[in-house]
Design a protein around this nucleic acid. Sequence first.
DNA 1: ATCATTGCAAACACTTTGCATACGC
DNA 2: GCGTATGCAAAGTGTTTGCAATGAT
Lengths: 149, 149
Amino acid sequence: MEGSDYMTVEKKIEYISEILREKNISPSLQRIQIYKYLMENHVHPNVDMIYKVLVKTIPTLSKTTVYNTLKLFQEKGLVSVITIEENEARFDINTHLHGHFKCINCGKIFDFEIKELKIESNLEKENKIVDQQLYIRGYCKDCLKKMEK
Amino acid sequence: MEGSDYMTVEKKIEYISEILREKNISPSLQRIQIYKYLMENHVHPNVDMIYKVLVKTIPTLSKTTVYNTLKLFQEKGLVSVITIEENEARFDINTHLHGHFKCINCGKIFDFEIKELKIESNLEKENKIVDQQLYIRGYCKDCLKKMEK
DNA sequence: ATCATTGCAAACACTTTGCATACGC
DNA sequence: GCGTATGCAAAGTGTTTGCAATGAT
């Protein structure tokens, strides 16, 4: 729901609280703010990025809480973990299926659209799919231009 | 080339040496054995699994060498890194595009076939793709059966 | 008062780095 | 003999764990 951009802060907090309650998560300040950050910043942040931004408004915040909360969100299907980086987890609010491209030169990660994806029909029938991720690694447009010079 | 299953050890070593030389990698004992292991064991091993098996035949082997070698192979496009696990890298000989399913209950990882995949045409035109990975996380057939009971 | 949540500090595990030793042409 | 490859030990880094303090009902 992208209409959330136009909500007042209070309405947004109530909206997020409701999402959390639906998943049986009690809406604490920390949890609301972490969800709000992910909702407003589709930048595939890692734990440190989330922590550094939120600790400014919640000075007592600890990284453990960020870890705990993201793990909880993940278990409840609210966020998906992007493991395209080899050394750290990144997080994204669960939206429709889309791919992630990572530039192996500048490190940038961006989304791309998946138009069609067909896999073995048995896989979907026999197993229970929780999460799908398509990763592409390579050199991005901008880096290719710089390399030509 | 699956005919490699029927090769004598000597022929296989010569075959691997040639693959390495083509990529400007001097075929040392360690490098050959690591490549051979990946060629014969499509089990998406992590560094430790490779190390523990090979140290039996190469007692002086160190994990650093396994790390170095896999990084080199990766740079030269001989192996692809599977980052479906959140805490460790796994490795696979580069073959045709296929997906990896990871059971979030038992931890098993297995391959599946991708029948069709269409992404934004601009992505392929404008950027240079080096590696593609499709990951699906969920509950596998066997674990679902056990859960029913 | 009780149970859940938070957060500090220490422990863990995978990976990288620095540097000395050994190897190969 | 000289450049490359190897491997040990130490350091680095993201993440988890144990447990005490805090907060909510």
